[in-house]
Design a binder for these strands. Structure first.
Lengths: 219, 219
DNA sequence: CAATTATTCAAGTGATTTATTGAATAAAGG
DNA sequence: CCTTTATTCAATAAATCACTTGAATAATTG
């Protein structure tokens, strides 16, 4: 193989992988699957995609070795192929949020609207983890909590939040977290809780970021 | 801004960045610019692009905050906007080479053809760096060497290699490096040198990877 | 075994991306 | 000031991508 042919093959292969990621619907699917496996139906519920369209996107991801699938009864469950990819995806989002001014601005406006601008970083969380005056709250759907959650967190899905309000003390600071920086669940939780007089902040990132960091630390 | 709108804005912004990278010509340009700034003409010489086409690709990269430009006389010099992006690009290439089977295969076949399969990693290089029996050889064009090179390397551009052969000792092991894992210069150097009876291996990666690692270590 | 359900397939259309071509700028030199 | 040179702009055609629609599979249930 000549030098030019080799280069063309390598850059085309790399571009193919990038093309698989270069689509908003697929990025959202990737984020969904970072929380754990989901059926096509599960993906559809959480997005604004039609079934056929979601299936097509999932197949693109599968053909590019980003997700894998497993069949069970009627359902086909999709999940991210490995943690290496999750690390890459998180690097991409982190870069985008900190270096692309427009994205940073959109993110901050969203958090501002929900009184969630004063967020907590993972570093800070690690330092607070043994503080008994802090309550760590996972506001994702309970299936996702059950699939994996930050050590010490309690599960309070958004659907239960309003009716459970009285269970929490107003003296204890609440840290809410969800799927990651692009997920709005924690923002909504912060809005509701702070409007009801609770001391609350959101975690900058989400469960997948915590998980990746934990993987690295235990090596 | 509603939750759905916010998500759409974030994922669309992320996808836009990914689209800018999801093209073989632009990936090659990014790799070129990792070696230092280049004019449009400079980019054209190193690729198979026409001038107008290269200019268009450079503008896509510029509009996505990946490269910046500076004007000097007739020329417009382009360079990567910061080291953050270089880190991301290297994460992408590293992931692709180790997780995408087809790319790994193409890379290994290329190295096999050039007797360069037995390559040296950056880790190994660090350990050998003080060994007087090892000669570290930068085979990129001399402009790129002058812009920055691995400490202790000598510059032997491919154009000079054949006529300089007699200057090197056959007892001393040679480590050749170039722009990175996708660059064929070091492979070609290994082929020539080993056919002439030298002990030679190539570095797995290239100058940009060494530079990124060095940045991190000095922090 | 027929009906139901989750998913995939296939075809078609509109939108986006890419490379090419030739003309237009803009800076430098004679 | 005219010519040369490097780069950019604008218009086009070909290729690819994304979403929709409706039908086809394949596993499960009554």
């Amino acid at each position: 193989m000549k030098g030019r042919e080799f280069k063309d093959a390598m850059y085309e292969g790399l571009a193919k992988l990038m093309r698989a990621i270069a689509n908003p619907a697929r990025l959202e699917i990737i984020e969904m699957l970072s929380q754990g496996e989901k059926s096509v139906e599960g993906v559809v519920e959480a997005t604004s995609l039609t079934v056929a369209n979601a299936s097509q996107h999932l197949q693109v991801l599968k053909n590019n070795n980003i997700v894998k699938s497993r069949k069970e009864g009627h359902y086909v469950f999709y999940s991210l192929i490995n943690n290496e990819f999750m690390g890459l995806y998180q690097h991409i989002t982190k870069y985008a949020v900190s270096e692309i001014a427009e994205l940073e601005k959109t993110l901050n406006r969203q958090r501002d609207d929900n009184h969630a601008l004063n967020s907590v970083s993972l570093d800070e969380l690690e330092r607070m983890i043994n503080d008994k005056n802090v309550l760590l709250m996972d506001v994702r759907p309970s299936v996702e909590y059950e699939f994996g959650h930050i050590t010490g967190a309690i599960s309070v899905p958004m659907s239960d939040l309003l009716c459970c309000l009285k269970d929490f003390s107003k003296d204890r600071e609440i840290i809410a977290y969800c799927r990651g920086p692009f997920c709005v669940l924690a923002d909504e939780a912060v809005k509701i809780l702070s409007e009801n007089g609770y001391k609350v902040r959101r975690l900058d990132e989400g469960y997948p970021e915590w998980k990746m960091r934990h993987l690295h630390e235990s090596n």
